[in-house]
Simulated scan of single mutants.
Amino acid sequence: MQRILNCRTHDFAKPAAASELVQAIVASEGRVIMAEVAAGASPLYGEVTNGELLCAFGCDLLLVKGMNCRTQAIQGCENLAHFKALTGRLIGVSMEVLADPSLDDPRACNLNNLALLQEADFYCLTAYDKPGVTTERVIDALRQIRAMTDKMILVAKFYASGLAEPQEYARYVLEGADGVMIPAPASCRGASEEKVACALAAVQAVGGVGITTLSSSQEGADEDTVRQIALASKRCGADMYNFGDAGVAGMADPQALYAFSMAVRGRRHTWVRMAASLAR
């Protein structure tokens, strides 16, 4: 697989093992953008899905959040396979790690739901700061998923206190994750460039993809703020950047995403991604 920057629809249509996708992301030298789409949110404009809109503004990968794995319904289209066909991008699915692994939740991270997601190109294990959702619980879920797939697995563990210690992020990679999300500089309390850079370096040192995430509702901030966060993330050495879904209508603010893209990779790569036909 060539670097993500050079991939087009026919490249994204091919199955990619974790090792191939990781290499394609790292080879892009900090110029890959992923954006989340809330499956249950009505599209901002009824004529297109939110995913299509984000792609039109320059994102490379899409991460579907809050999807019922049994129905695979995404507002504005038929299902996950249809969503991929409409956008021509790599599509990941976020599954929430719950404190009780035995709960029969169609959106939770478990093997039953994983078996239904063969159309997904990669997975994200999302863990919020809730009672019982500990590091060990996340690692237990990660080990189970890793044993069943060779696709890329990301971990997004959030903490009310801000950032975790660098070695905790690195541990997820040592336990089987291919990449880890870390709050972008200034996106949560105490997220200084120094701390974020140390966390990213720890993940990368053990072979993982270091991802900064803008997911504290600042994905709906003004363009200048987003641009500053973008440049700070790149200075910290991130391999990839993630936008959360709280910008507008269950997705990032498309204009904020465009500003971010222009800041980290300039006009050439931004406009080519925006303009490239799905027939390529």
Results as ranks from 00 to 15, higher is better:
Asp104Met: 14
Ile33Ala: 00
Thr212Ala: 02
Glu119Trp: 12
Ala115Ser: 15
Ala156Val: 03
Ala249Gln: 12
Val272Phe: 06
Met152Phe: 11
Tyr241His: 13
Leu62Tyr: 14
Ala202Thr: 13
Ile33Thr: 09
Gly30Ala: 03
Thr213His: 02
Arg268His: 07
Ile91Ser: 10
Leu116Glu: 09
Val180Trp: 02
Cys55Ser: 10
Met240Gln: 08
Ala252Cys: 14
Ser161Lys: 02
Ala177His: 08
Ala35Met: 09
Ala164Tyr: 06
Glu78Leu: 06
Ser161Trp: 03
Val173Arg: 03
Met152Asp: 03
Met148Thr: 12
Gly250Arg: 09
Tyr241Met: 12
Gly51Phe: 01
Thr134Glu: 08
Ala230Leu: 11
Arg268Glu: 13
Gly220Tyr: 00
Ala73Thr: 12
Gln2Gly: 06
Arg107Val: 06
Thr9Leu: 01
Ser261Ile: 08
Leu98Glu: 15
Ile211Met: 05
Ala199Tyr: 04
Glu36Tyr: 02
Arg8Ile: 14
Met1Cys: 07
Asp224Arg: 14
Val209Gln: 14
Asn6Val: 03
Lys84His: 11
Gly210Phe: 09
Met95Cys: 15
Lys130His: 11
Ala263Lys: 00
Val64Thr: 05
Val48Ile: 08
Thr135Phe: 02
Ala81Glu: 15
Lys65Cys: 01
Cys59Gln: 02
Pro106Lys: 08
Phe243Asn: 09
Ile33Gly: 00
Asn50Val: 07
Met1Arg: 11
Val203His: 07
His82Thr: 11
Gln118Val: 07
Lys84Arg: 15
Ile182Arg: 04
Pro15Asn: 13
Tyr258Gln: 06
Gln218Tyr: 04
Leu5Gln: 03
Phe122Leu: 08
Met251Tyr: 03
Leu80Ser: 09
Arg189Ile: 11
Glu136Ala: 14
Asn50Glu: 14
Asp222Phe: 11
Ala18Tyr: 05
Ile74Lys: 05
Pro101Ile: 12
Gly30Asn: 02
Cys55Thr: 14
Lys151Gly: 04
Tyr241Gln: 05
Ser19Arg: 12
Gly92Thr: 05
Ile74Glu: 03
Cys236Gly: 00
Glu175Arg: 07
Thr270Asp: 10
Leu62Met: 14
Ala249Glu: 13
Ala27Arg: 13
Thr49Gln: 02
Cys188Gln: 00
Ala184Leu: 10
Leu214Cys: 06
Val226Asp: 07
Ala156Lys: 13
Met95Asp: 15
Ser161Cys: 03
Ala24Gln: 06
Arg70Ser: 05
Ala35Asp: 11
Thr212Pro: 00
Arg143Met: 11
Gly220Thr: 07
Glu165Gly: 07
Gly46Pro: 04
Arg70Trp: 02
Met181Gly: 09
Arg70Thr: 12
Val196Ala: 05
Ser102His: 11
Glu36Lys: 12
Asn79Asp: 15
Val226Gly: 00
Ala35Arg: 04
Glu119Pro: 04
Glu29Asp: 15
Met240His: 05
Ala35Phe: 01
Thr225Asp: 13
Ala202Tyr: 00
Ser42Lys: 10
Ala191Pro: 05
Leu231His: 01
Leu174Tyr: 05
Tyr128Pro: 03
Glu20His: 10
Gly40Lys: 00
Val155Met: 01
Arg227Met: 10
Val64Ala: 07
Val272Gly: 01
Cys124Val: 09
Ile139Tyr: 01
Tyr159His: 15
Val48Lys: 02
Val272Ile: 14
Asp11Ala: 02
Lys130Ile: 08
Gln118Lys: 15
